[in-house]
């Protein structure tokens, strides 16, 4: 489901004519290699943006991603109670 949500997010970013927003999100949240994720400044430098723009893009993308995930989860659950339980389980950040 999360994979599908990422695809939806990319489509959303492409539709807004700001595909770089998804690129920022991918560089920060989809990084596979090693444990160290890039800083906002490193992403800004790599994409020729300001760190403030990176912050704003990330915030917008995360908000949209959360919305997509919760909507998809709603489609997969049969009642509001089940949706709440599943969403709380999925979104409960772990240490």
């Amino acid at each position: 489901m999360l994979e599908r949500a990422v695809i939806d997010l990319k489509q959303y970013a492409d539709a807004t004519t700001r595909p770089v927003m998804f690129e920022v999100f991918a560089r920060y949240h989809l990084v596979e290699d090693g444990d160290v994720r890039p800083t906002y400044t490193e992403i800004a430098r790599a994409l020729n943006l300001t760190p403030a723009t990176v912050t704003n893009h990330l915030a917008a993308m995360r908000r949209q991603f959360r919305k997509i995930v919760l909507e998809r989860l709603r489609e997969l659950t049969s009642s509001e109670e089940k949706w709440e339980a599943e969403a709380a389980k999925l979104l409960g950040a772990k240490e």
Binding site: L2, A5, V6, F25, H29, L30, V31, E32, R37, M61, R62, F65, R66, V69, L70, L90, L91, G92, A93, K94
Partner: peptide, 12 residues
């Protein structure tokens, strides 16, 4: 690892 980061992104 990415699943964990995506959950984190959605909860952020």
């Amino acid at each position: 690892r990415v699943v964990g980061r995506l959950r984190e992104a959605a909860a952020w």
